Amino acid sequence: MLLPFINPRLPLSESHAAIVISRLVQAVARTDGPAYRVTLDALGDEQVMSTSLSTLFDCVPQINEEYADYCDDEHQEVFWMAYQEIGLERGPLGLVCMNSTETGYLSTAQAMNALVDRIRLLINCREMDQATA
């Protein structure tokens, strides 16, 4: 599941973004863990640890929302639907979204975990729809 070198300071090309999204959604479907393990230390500061999905999710901030217009497979469709449903947005500290009660923002790591959860939910819904069809 190796990707070519990706410069974290530059946006991904459409083709690289499509590859990253496809691999990301496939990896999420094959696992049941979060993108990042998030805990709080004794002072209440967030501690973030990498998981097997983290490398793929490190590329998500480089994926430009304009790529959603070029959705050409079901993996990209699931990714962009999840992206929009959780309300992922660019903030000064990275990609964030509102918490479930909409009283505050999740950190980037927590937002990526929310994206994973929504992708899994959408995949499961599609699988159930296909089973009943």
Rank of each mutant, 00 (worst) to 15 (best):
R120N: 08
Q47Y: 03
S50H: 13
V116M: 08
D73K: 04
E102I: 10
V38H: 04
A111G: 09
G91S: 09
R118F: 00
G91N: 05
A27D: 14
A29H: 07
R90I: 05
M128L: 15
S54N: 08
D69Y: 12
I86S: 08
Y83H: 13
D72Q: 14
Y70D: 03
A82G: 04
A114V: 01
L10D: 12
N64F: 09
Q130T: 10
S52N: 10
A109D: 09
E65V: 12
Q110I: 04
A68R: 15
L115R: 01
I19R: 13
G33H: 07
F79H: 03
I86M: 07
N64S: 12
E102D: 08
I63W: 00
E127M: 10
P8M: 13
T31V: 03
A42Q: 08
R30F: 05
E102P: 01
Y67E: 04
A111W: 02
L3E: 05
A42H: 07
A133C: 06
A17K: 00
R118L: 02
D45C: 06
E46M: 12
S107A: 13
T51C: 07
I63V: 15
S107G: 05
R37T: 10
G33T: 06
Y105R: 13
H16E: 13
S100E: 13
N113R: 07
F57R: 04
E74T: 06
A82H: 01
Y83N: 15
L121T: 09
G104M: 13
T103I: 06
A111T: 14
